[in-house]
Protein backbone atom coordinates (compact mmCIF):
# COMPACT_ATOMS: atom_id res chain seq x y z
CA UNK A 1 0.00 0.00 0.00
CA UNK A 2 2.81 2.36 0.93
CA UNK A 3 4.51 1.63 -2.37
CA UNK A 4 1.31 2.41 -4.21
CA UNK A 5 0.96 5.72 -2.38
CA UNK A 6 4.59 6.53 -3.20
CA UNK A 7 4.00 5.84 -6.91
CA UNK A 8 0.93 8.10 -6.88
CA UNK A 9 2.88 10.91 -5.23
CA UNK A 10 5.73 10.57 -7.75
CA UNK A 11 3.29 10.57 -10.67
CA UNK A 12 1.48 13.59 -9.24
CA UNK A 13 4.70 15.53 -8.79
CA UNK A 14 5.82 14.58 -12.30
CA UNK A 15 2.58 15.89 -13.76
CA UNK A 16 3.10 19.19 -11.94
CA UNK A 17 6.58 19.66 -13.37
CA UNK A 18 7.24 23.29 -14.22
CA UNK A 19 8.88 24.08 -17.52
CA UNK A 20 11.24 26.98 -17.24
CA UNK A 21 12.70 27.50 -20.68
CA UNK A 22 15.05 30.40 -21.20
CA UNK A 23 13.89 31.53 -24.58
CA UNK A 24 16.13 33.78 -26.59
CA UNK A 25 14.90 34.61 -30.08
CA UNK A 26 13.85 37.40 -32.45
CA UNK A 27 10.21 37.12 -31.44
CA UNK A 28 10.45 39.04 -28.17
CA UNK A 29 11.82 35.94 -26.46
CA UNK A 30 8.59 34.03 -26.88
CA UNK A 31 7.80 31.09 -29.10
CA UNK A 32 4.49 31.15 -30.94
CA UNK A 33 2.58 27.87 -30.90
CA UNK A 34 1.09 27.11 -34.31
CA UNK A 35 -1.01 24.11 -35.18
CA UNK A 36 0.02 21.88 -38.05
CA UNK A 37 -2.76 22.65 -40.56
CA UNK A 38 -5.11 23.29 -37.66
CA UNK A 39 -5.17 20.67 -34.93
CA UNK A 40 -2.61 18.42 -36.60
CA UNK A 41 -2.68 14.88 -37.87
CA UNK A 42 -3.97 13.23 -34.72
CA UNK A 43 -7.24 15.17 -34.64
CA UNK A 44 -10.55 13.80 -35.90
CA UNK A 45 -10.90 17.03 -37.85
CA UNK A 46 -9.13 16.68 -41.21
CA UNK A 47 -6.02 18.82 -41.53
CA UNK A 48 -6.66 22.17 -43.26
CA UNK A 49 -10.40 22.01 -42.64
CA UNK A 50 -12.07 25.11 -41.23
CA UNK A 51 -13.16 23.10 -38.20
CA UNK A 52 -9.59 22.08 -37.47
CA UNK A 53 -8.30 25.66 -37.76
CA UNK A 54 -11.11 27.11 -35.62
CA UNK A 55 -10.55 24.41 -33.01
CA UNK A 56 -6.83 25.17 -32.88
CA UNK A 57 -7.51 28.84 -32.27
CA UNK A 58 -10.19 28.05 -29.69
CA UNK A 59 -7.85 25.96 -27.55
CA UNK A 60 -5.37 28.84 -27.35
CA UNK A 61 -2.97 28.44 -30.26
CA UNK A 62 -1.19 31.57 -31.46
CA UNK A 63 -2.19 30.58 -34.97
CA UNK A 64 -1.77 27.84 -37.47
CA UNK A 65 0.09 26.69 -40.52
CA UNK A 66 -2.12 26.07 -43.55
CA UNK A 67 -1.28 24.29 -46.81
CA UNK A 68 -2.51 26.27 -49.78
CA UNK A 69 -3.12 25.28 -53.39
CA UNK A 70 -4.52 26.97 -56.47
CA UNK A 71 -7.68 25.90 -58.27
CA UNK A 72 -8.26 26.07 -62.02
CA UNK A 73 -10.00 29.46 -61.59
CA UNK A 74 -7.17 30.81 -59.40
CA UNK A 75 -8.85 30.45 -56.01
CA UNK A 76 -6.65 29.57 -53.06
CA UNK A 77 -7.87 26.57 -51.09
CA UNK A 78 -6.43 24.87 -48.04
CA UNK A 79 -5.38 21.37 -48.99
CA UNK A 80 -2.30 19.27 -48.41
CA UNK A 81 -2.05 16.33 -50.81
CA UNK A 82 -1.10 16.58 -54.46
CA UNK A 83 -4.31 14.88 -55.47
CA UNK A 84 -7.77 14.53 -54.00
CA UNK A 85 -7.97 10.74 -54.26
CA UNK A 86 -6.83 9.63 -50.82
CA UNK A 87 -8.63 12.03 -48.54
CA UNK A 88 -11.79 13.21 -50.34
CA UNK A 89 -14.66 11.87 -52.40
CA UNK A 90 -13.22 13.46 -55.56
CA UNK A 91 -10.40 12.28 -57.79
CA UNK A 92 -7.71 14.22 -59.60
CA UNK A 93 -5.89 17.43 -58.83
CA UNK A 94 -6.97 20.69 -57.24
CA UNK A 95 -5.61 22.58 -60.26
CA UNK A 96 -8.08 20.76 -62.54
CA UNK A 97 -11.18 21.88 -60.64
CA UNK A 98 -12.84 25.26 -60.26
CA UNK A 99 -13.92 26.36 -56.80
CA UNK A 100 -17.57 25.75 -57.74
CA UNK A 101 -16.69 22.18 -58.62
CA UNK A 102 -14.66 21.54 -55.53
CA UNK A 103 -16.59 23.34 -52.81
CA UNK A 104 -18.95 20.45 -52.07
CA UNK A 105 -16.24 17.81 -51.96
CA UNK A 106 -16.04 16.05 -48.60
CA UNK A 107 -13.08 14.71 -46.69
CA UNK A 108 -13.50 11.00 -46.11
CA UNK A 109 -10.79 10.48 -43.52
CA UNK A 110 -13.25 10.03 -40.67
CA UNK A 111 -16.35 7.91 -40.99
CA UNK A 112 -19.70 9.66 -40.63
CA UNK A 113 -18.07 13.09 -40.36
CA UNK A 114 -18.25 14.95 -43.63
CA UNK A 115 -16.16 18.13 -43.62
CA UNK A 116 -15.62 20.37 -46.63
CA UNK A 117 -12.55 21.81 -48.31
CA UNK A 118 -11.78 25.36 -47.14
CA UNK A 119 -11.43 28.43 -49.34
CA UNK A 120 -8.67 30.53 -47.78
CA UNK A 121 -10.52 33.81 -48.31
CA UNK A 122 -13.55 32.40 -46.42
CA UNK A 123 -11.31 31.61 -43.52
CA UNK A 124 -9.76 35.08 -43.52
CA UNK A 125 -13.23 36.61 -43.65
CA UNK A 126 -14.81 34.57 -40.89
CA UNK A 127 -12.19 34.05 -38.19
CA UNK A 128 -13.20 36.37 -35.36
CA UNK A 129 -10.36 38.74 -34.34
CA UNK A 130 -8.28 37.25 -37.13
CA UNK A 131 -5.45 39.74 -36.77
CA UNK A 132 -4.77 38.34 -33.28
CA UNK A 133 -3.67 35.06 -34.84
CA UNK A 134 -0.76 34.03 -37.01
CA UNK A 135 -1.31 32.19 -40.27
CA UNK A 136 1.61 30.64 -42.05
CA UNK A 137 0.62 29.61 -45.56
CA UNK A 138 2.65 26.68 -46.82
CA UNK A 139 2.58 26.97 -50.61
CA UNK A 140 2.01 23.59 -52.28
CA UNK A 141 3.03 23.91 -55.91
CA UNK A 142 1.62 21.26 -58.24
CA UNK A 143 1.71 22.89 -61.69
CA UNK A 144 1.20 19.72 -63.73
CA UNK A 145 2.42 19.57 -67.31
CA UNK A 146 -0.34 21.01 -69.48
CA UNK A 147 -0.91 24.48 -70.89
CA UNK A 148 -2.00 25.65 -67.46
CA UNK A 149 1.48 24.87 -66.09
CA UNK A 150 3.14 27.74 -67.95
CA UNK A 151 1.20 30.43 -66.11
CA UNK A 152 0.77 28.45 -62.87
CA UNK A 153 3.46 30.19 -60.79
CA UNK A 154 2.41 33.59 -62.01
CA UNK A 155 -1.26 32.89 -61.26
CA UNK A 156 -0.37 31.53 -57.83
CA UNK A 157 1.76 34.55 -56.96
CA UNK A 158 -1.01 36.92 -58.05
CA UNK A 159 -3.60 35.01 -56.02
CA UNK A 160 -1.42 35.20 -52.90
CA UNK A 161 -0.73 38.89 -53.39
CA UNK A 162 -4.45 39.59 -53.89
CA UNK A 163 -5.31 37.67 -50.73
CA UNK A 164 -2.81 39.67 -48.67
CA UNK A 165 -4.08 42.94 -50.12
CA UNK A 166 -7.78 42.16 -49.76
CA UNK A 167 -7.53 41.12 -46.12
CA UNK A 168 -4.49 43.17 -45.09
CA UNK A 169 -2.62 40.12 -43.87
CA UNK A 170 0.85 41.66 -43.77
CA UNK A 171 1.21 41.89 -40.01
CA UNK A 172 0.13 38.38 -39.05
CA UNK A 173 0.49 36.10 -42.05
CA UNK A 174 3.49 34.55 -43.77
CA UNK A 175 4.32 32.55 -46.83
CA UNK A 176 6.42 29.39 -46.66
CA UNK A 177 7.63 27.94 -49.96
CA UNK A 178 10.16 25.40 -51.13
CA UNK A 179 10.66 27.05 -54.49
CA UNK A 180 13.14 29.89 -54.79
CA UNK A 181 11.58 30.81 -58.14
CA UNK A 182 8.16 31.17 -56.55
CA UNK A 183 9.48 33.28 -53.70
CA UNK A 184 11.38 35.56 -56.06
CA UNK A 185 8.30 36.03 -58.26
CA UNK A 186 6.25 36.82 -55.16
CA UNK A 187 8.76 39.33 -53.84
CA UNK A 188 8.90 40.98 -57.27
CA UNK A 189 5.18 41.70 -57.33
CA UNK A 190 4.65 42.21 -53.61
CA UNK A 191 7.68 42.91 -51.45
CA UNK A 192 5.63 43.46 -48.30
CA UNK A 193 4.84 39.79 -47.76
CA UNK A 194 6.99 38.06 -45.16
CA UNK A 195 8.42 34.95 -46.79
CA UNK A 196 10.11 31.87 -45.40
CA UNK A 197 12.16 29.44 -47.45
CA UNK A 198 11.42 25.82 -46.72
CA UNK A 199 14.73 24.07 -47.40
CA UNK A 200 15.89 20.45 -47.19
CA UNK A 201 18.88 21.46 -45.06
CA UNK A 202 19.88 24.45 -43.00
CA UNK A 203 22.92 25.55 -45.02
CA UNK A 204 21.09 25.82 -48.35
CA UNK A 205 18.12 27.49 -46.69
CA UNK A 206 20.31 29.96 -44.85
CA UNK A 207 22.13 30.98 -48.05
CA UNK A 208 18.88 31.34 -49.98
CA UNK A 209 17.29 33.39 -47.23
CA UNK A 210 20.30 35.72 -46.91
CA UNK A 211 20.80 36.13 -50.66
CA UNK A 212 17.13 36.88 -51.30
CA UNK A 213 16.50 39.04 -48.25
CA UNK A 214 13.83 36.71 -46.87
CA UNK A 215 12.11 36.95 -43.51
CA UNK A 216 13.22 33.54 -42.35
CA UNK A 217 13.60 29.79 -42.64
CA UNK A 218 10.92 27.17 -42.09
CA UNK A 219 12.59 23.84 -41.45
CA UNK A 220 12.00 20.31 -40.17
CA UNK A 221 12.93 19.75 -36.54
CA UNK A 222 15.43 17.04 -37.52
CA UNK A 223 17.26 19.35 -39.92
CA UNK A 224 18.28 22.16 -37.59
CA UNK A 225 20.24 22.47 -34.35
CA UNK A 226 20.10 25.00 -31.56
CA UNK A 227 23.38 26.48 -32.81
CA UNK A 228 21.99 26.89 -36.33
CA UNK A 229 18.90 28.64 -34.98
CA UNK A 230 21.28 31.01 -33.21
CA UNK A 231 23.20 31.65 -36.45
CA UNK A 232 19.93 32.42 -38.23
CA UNK A 233 18.91 34.82 -35.49
CA UNK A 234 22.31 36.54 -35.53
CA UNK A 235 21.70 37.19 -39.23
CA UNK A 236 18.21 38.53 -38.67
CA UNK A 237 16.36 35.48 -39.90
CA UNK A 238 13.27 34.19 -38.09
CA UNK A 239 12.98 30.42 -37.70
CA UNK A 240 9.90 28.22 -37.86
CA UNK A 241 10.37 24.60 -36.81
CA UNK A 242 7.91 21.97 -38.06
CA UNK A 243 7.89 18.17 -38.17
CA UNK A 244 7.03 18.18 -34.48
CA UNK A 245 4.56 15.36 -34.10
CA UNK A 246 4.49 14.49 -30.41
CA UNK A 247 4.87 16.00 -26.98
CA UNK A 248 8.50 14.97 -26.48
CA UNK A 249 9.36 16.62 -29.81
CA UNK A 250 7.73 19.85 -28.61
CA UNK A 251 10.21 20.14 -25.80
CA UNK A 252 13.07 19.25 -28.13
CA UNK A 253 11.99 22.00 -30.52
CA UNK A 254 11.51 24.59 -27.76
CA UNK A 255 15.06 24.03 -26.54
CA UNK A 256 16.34 25.15 -29.95
CA UNK A 257 14.82 28.63 -29.41
CA UNK A 258 12.91 29.06 -32.68
CA UNK A 259 10.42 31.87 -33.15
CA UNK A 260 7.52 29.60 -34.04
CA UNK A 261 6.77 25.89 -33.78
CA UNK A 262 4.24 24.10 -35.95
CA UNK A 263 3.10 21.00 -34.12
CA UNK A 264 0.71 18.07 -34.20
CA UNK A 265 0.72 17.96 -30.39
CA UNK A 266 -0.81 21.41 -30.10
CA UNK A 267 -2.46 21.19 -26.69
CA UNK A 268 0.80 20.03 -25.16
CA UNK A 269 2.78 22.81 -26.81
CA UNK A 270 0.34 25.49 -25.64
CA UNK A 271 0.48 24.10 -22.12
CA UNK A 272 4.26 23.77 -22.12
CA UNK A 273 4.88 27.24 -23.49
CA UNK A 274 2.20 28.70 -21.23
CA UNK A 275 4.35 27.70 -18.28
CA UNK A 276 7.38 29.43 -19.63
CA UNK A 277 6.08 32.72 -21.05
Amino acid sequence: MRYLAFIFVVLFLASCKKHNFEIDNLNGNRIDALGHAGMGLSSLYPINSAESVLNAISIGADGTELDIQLTKDNILVAFHDENLNNSTNLEGFIRDYTWEEIKNASYNSTQYLSYKITRVSDLMENVVNRSNYLFSFDVKLYPGTGEQATSYYNDFVNAVSLLFNNYNLYSHCFIEAQSETFINELITINGQIKTFIYPQDFISGFELAINNGLYGISIHNDNITKEQVKIAHENGLYVIIWGVNKSSKNEEAILKNPDMIETDALKNLIKTLGNST
Binding site: A50, E51, L54, Y112, L113, S114, D122, N126, V127
Partner: peptide
Protein backbone atom coordinates in the same frame (compact mmCIF):
# COMPACT_ATOMS: atom_id res chain seq x y z
CA UNK B 1 -28.59 1.42 -39.46
CA UNK B 2 -26.53 4.00 -37.70
CA UNK B 3 -28.04 7.45 -37.43
CA UNK B 4 -25.43 10.11 -36.90
CA UNK B 5 -25.48 13.77 -36.08
CA UNK B 6 -22.42 15.99 -35.96
CA UNK B 7 -21.34 19.61 -36.00
CA UNK B 8 -19.60 21.25 -38.89
CA UNK B 9 -18.88 24.84 -39.87
CA UNK B 10 -21.54 26.54 -42.01
CA UNK B 11 -20.73 29.23 -44.59
CA UNK B 12 -20.30 31.81 -41.80
CA UNK B 13 -18.12 29.36 -39.87
CA UNK B 14 -20.70 28.96 -37.17
CA UNK B 15 -21.49 25.48 -35.81
CA UNK B 16 -24.29 23.80 -37.70
CA UNK B 17 -25.75 20.37 -36.95
CA UNK B 18 -25.89 17.80 -39.72
CA UNK B 19 -27.89 14.56 -39.75
CA UNK B 20 -27.00 11.43 -41.72
CA UNK B 21 -27.82 7.78 -41.75
CA UNK B 22 -25.69 4.80 -42.71
Amino acid sequence: NTFSTYIRANHNYQPEREFDSH
